[in-house]
């Protein structure tokens, strides 16, 4: 019995690992982008990477990986586009929160901004225990399914064997609750985590409302924020110190699930 269980676990881990590293995405454009970057043609590299992102936005191809945003951020940085580079890395860290390269580069870039704001954005207290801050969507997905399958196996054991039935039911219930917990984290990550972005204009004024009423504060290129809502050409943002204001969308860049505000220069070329 133990041997069979070991065998099944090995098989499942290998299948899951294979699945997570699969899904080829627009290999042609990525090849070109890599080549352009290596040859120092950073503008071409940016446009190729943006093409991949735009294609995924129109659902014609799968979503790009966090590494695509990492490379895009590098290409922007080489072109001295600090705001766009920060926006790219914010997206990369959202997709892959544990990746050290992304965190390092983002810290490095934020250190070069004038406003010296960080990306530790406020999140509601009740969501602070969720797993989405440390895992990717796919990891959460397969984790919840795996834990559910373990719960189902333990329950099945409890059904078929009368010995240790109470203990097995308790263990199965714990695994079932864990699967619900990871599923809740996945749901929150995919539906409720606000998109993040950065200022690309040299200087951007934040207003109290979307009518240029009163200037509340000023931001400079590279300042990170999270997007709360949009109204026509206006975007309501929140900084890491919880300051809120409305800014014009032409002065910002954001790569997100809901608000994909691509940098005007590169997107117009593509």
């Amino acid at each position: 019995m133990l041997r069979r269980l070991k065998l099944a676990t090995c098989l499942w881990v290998s299948i899951a690992a294979n699945l997570i590293s699969a899904s080829p995405v627009q290999a042609g454009s990525l090849d070109k982008a890599q080549a352009a970057y290596q040859s120092g043609q950073y503008e071409d590299a940016v446009n190729q990477y943006l093409q991949v992102i735009e294609a995924s936005e129109s659902k014609s191809s799968p979503s790009p990986s966090a590494s695509v945003y990492h490379n895009l951020g590098l290409a922007f940085d080489r072109q001295k586009e600090l705001g766009q580079a920060v926006a790219s890395y914010l997206r990369a860290t959202q997709l892959q929160p544990r990746q050290g390269d992304f965190q390092y580069n983002l810290r490095f870039l934020l250190g070069q901004t004038q406003d010296k704001l960080d990306n530790n954005f406020h999140r509601p207290m009740e969501t602070s225990f969720l797993l989405d801050q440390w895992t990717t969507e796919r990891e959460l997905f397969y984790l919840s399914i795996s834990v559910f399958l373990i719960a189902a196996a333990v329950y099945s054991y409890a059904f078929l064997r009368t010995r240790y039935r109470t203990a097995a039911t308790s263990v199965g219930s714990i695994f079932f609750l864990l699967s619900l917990y990871s599923a809740a984290s996945l749901f929150y990550k995919s539906q409720f985590v606000p998109d993040q972005g950065a200022v690309i204009a040299p200087k951007l004024e934040a207003y109290s409302g979307p009518t240029q009423s009163v200037v509340i504060f000023e931001l400079h290129a590279g300042a990170p924020f999270q997007i709360l809502e949009t109204s026509n050409d206006w975007v309501k943002i929140e900084l890491s110190d919880q300051k809120r204001g409305w800014v014009r969308s032409e002065g910002i860049a954001s790569f997100g699930n809901e608000h994909n505000i691509l940098p005007a220069k590169a997107s117009s070329k593509s």
Binding site: L19, I20, S21, A22, S23, P24, V25, A27, L30, D31, Q34, Y37, P62, S63, P64, S65, A66, S67, V68, H70, N71, G73, L74, D77, L95, Q96, D101, Y104, N105, F108, L109, T136, E137, R138, F141, S190
Partner: peptide, 21 residues
């Protein structure tokens, strides 16, 4: 300086859920 670009293999994986997932 920043950490250098990631390789092609890392670019072609996806961190978000796809239809096959």
């Amino acid at each position: 300086d920043l950490v250098e670009p990631h390789s092609q293999r890392m670019l072609s994986s996806s961190d978000q859920l796809t239809q096959s997932d």
